[in-house]
């Protein structure tokens, strides 16, 4: 059956069964299940992590969105909430953690630092945003974003999940998904993709 057909089943439910039967699409039920149980990784990088903790606590309570189950292990989590400054020294670890997360997985960049380097962008040990390392789904501005802003960002993530289809998401395609290459700590951070260019430059010098 084609996925489009799945999305519009076209069956009528007899009146006497309406209270017990409903017909929906696989996509919808699948997305509904996933968007209501996004498990973030317990992963705090800097100041923003404190606001993340505040959001998890009783006043803001993001368990209302099914997100309270924070897992310290990447193997059990769906969402990497990058809450803070990404440093070069931490970069290989972050990529490794991302690779260890099972699909489907999402990344939210919380705060100015994770989104683009933030106030510390010019620092010699700072990566200008986590999207230099791994793909990001939602960016949340702020330094730090308030708990309200964080919740807003997480709702945006849920909206994103709602639009996905089993047919097109990257993790149900044929073949294996390639892992993100892990950067190396050399005289400075070395991104594997840059190696030829660095060699070129080295020869000229």
């Amino acid at each position: 059956m084609e996925n489009n057909e799945l999305n519009s089943p076209g069956y009528e439910i007899p009146d006497d069964m309406k209270s017990v039967v409903s017909i929906t699409t696989l996509d919808k039920i699948y997305n509904w299940g996933r968007r209501s149980s996004v498990w973030p990784m317990m992963f705090g990088l800097a100041c923003c992590a404190i606001e993340m903790i505040a959001t998890a606590a009783s006043r803001y309570d993001f368990s209302r969105f099914g997100m309270e189950v924070m897992r310290p292990s990447p193997r059990q989590s769906d969402l990497m909430l990058v809450s803070g400054t990404v440093t070069k020294k931490m970069a290989p670890t972050i990529v490794r953690l991302y690779n260890q997360m099972p699909e489907p997985k999402y990344v939210v960049a919380m705060g100015a630092c994770a989104s683009g380097g933030g106030p510390f962008k010019e620092g010699y040990n700072v990566v200008s945003g986590v999207d230099k390392l791994i793909p990001v789904d939602v960016y949340i501005p702020g330094c730090p974003p308030t708990p309200q802003a964080l919740i807003n960002g997480l709702i945006k993530l849920q909206e994103l999940i709602d639009t996905q289809s089993l047919k097109t998401v990257r993790w149900y395609q044929k073949g294996e998904l390639a892992a993100v290459p892990v950067p190396v700590l050399g005289p400075d951070l070395i991104y594997p993709k840059d190696i030829p260019a660095i060699q070129e430059a080295g020869k000229e010098a």
Binding site: V127, G186, P187, D188, Y191, D194, Q199, G202, A205
Partner: peptide
């Protein structure tokens, strides 16, 4: 700042640096 850096990122390498030999 990225636009001014040859690698488009916050990195720099010493002269004659060859990552393959390092």
């Amino acid at each position: 700042a990225e636009d001014k850096n040859p690698y488009g990122a916050n990195v720099q390498y010493p002269d004659k640096f060859d990552p393959e030999k390092w």
